[in-house]
């Protein structure tokens, strides 16, 4: 079916889609920005486990089973092909993000971080999707050679829902326990312990280096550095990164030697103990089953669209 839109129809349709989206993005931006604090604090890198101690549904869930249950659900959600089911997954994830009772700013910041990529998909896929027989094509006035595929728009919306669903699960998954506990749980599930140790080291170093970088960059700006598109900028930034790296390397080398002096033998002592209860099994069962239900409905094509 081909529908040729008139100017008023095209304008009204575009506005009906773009306006709510723009308003939502604007509000999201304002809300996330409002959370930034001034001064020396590192607002740019949120400590992932800043709210790791709590008593919500997710905080009380054994970290090993939480990883299994939520990861399986995340993969199930990412595999969906139907828009209705992707929206259902998004609703479940949203409920989870609310249920973990930590400030929503972290979750919203995640959505904002993805918004550029997802907007690009929303804009590009409808105009470039493959042609299928019998599909609905909209022709915008002034764009005779560039049909708008309604199927492509549905596909892009499905992706937006799935990506947001998995992103909203990140806070319940990683922010509801101290990072050390989550990593110890990963180790119990068979992830090499050295990998967890490196995640822990990196998570710490990132804050340190970020602070170092902002100090160095500030002093560059004070000395008159203005980034532009030229070789001088490339040279300044290249040297800046090289210096950042050398400083970081020497600093962490000293820290490592100090650790060795204090008896570090390649492992961090972990006080995490795990004991799963019936409630943990029930929670895991619930999440695995909801993931399985979504996937089977999707495979059987039982959803309306």
């Amino acid at each position: 079916m081909e529908i040729h839109l008139s100017w008023p129809q095209a304008l009204a349709g575009t506005l009906a889609v773009a306006l709510p989206l723009a308003v939502a993005l604007f509000l999201l931006r304002r809300f996330v920005r409002a959370g930034r604090r001034d001064g020396d604090s590192d607002w740019t890198v949120p400590a992932v486990d800043g709210h790791g101690h709590g008593s919500s549904f997710f905080h009380r869930w054994d970290a090993r089973y939480k990883l299994i249950g939520l990861l399986l659900f995340a993969f199930a959600a990412a595999s969906l092909t139907s828009l209705a089911l992707a929206m259902a997954a998004l609703a479940i994830s949203l409920a989870a993000a609310l249920a973990c009772r930590i400030p929503m700013r972290g979750a919203l910041r995640r959505l904002l971080a993805m918004s550029g990529f997802l907007l690009m998909l929303l804009l590009v896929i409808p105009f470039t999707a493959a042609s299928r027989p019998g599909e609905t094509l909209l022709y915008f006035p002034g764009l005779p050679g560039l049909p708008f595929h309604v199927g492509g728009l549905l596909l892009a919306l499905t992706i937006v829902c799935k990506a947001s669903a998995v992103a909203l699960l990140m806070e319940p998954l990683f922010a509801t326990a101290p990072l050390t506990v989550t990593l110890a749980a990963c180790a119990r599930l068979g992830v090499p312990e050295s990998l967890g140790r490196m995640v822990l080291l990196c998570h710490r170093y990132i804050f340190v280096f970020l602070h170092e970088m902002s100090r160095m960059y500030r002093s560059m700006r004070v000395r008159g550095f203005v980034p532009a598109t030229d070789l001088a900028t490339a040279s300044a930034v290249g040297n800046f990164l090289g210096m950042l790296f050398v400083r970081s390397f020497e600093r962490t080398g000293r820290v490592y030697e100090a650790m060795l002096c204090r008896g570090y033998q390649g492992t961090f002592p972990s006080a995490a103990t795990f004991a799963a209860t019936a409630a943990d099994y029930a929670k895991t069962f619930f999440w695995v089953m909801s993931g399985a239900a979504l996937v089977s409905l999707d495979l059987l094509r039982l959803a309306p669209w």
């Binding site: 490196m198 990196c202 170093y205 340190v208 280096f209 970088m213 950042l244 970081s248 390397f249 962490t252």
Partner: peptide
Amino acid sequence: AVVTSSFFVA
């Protein structure tokens, strides 16, 4: 870990 973190920051 150092290289990873400094390139993360970069």
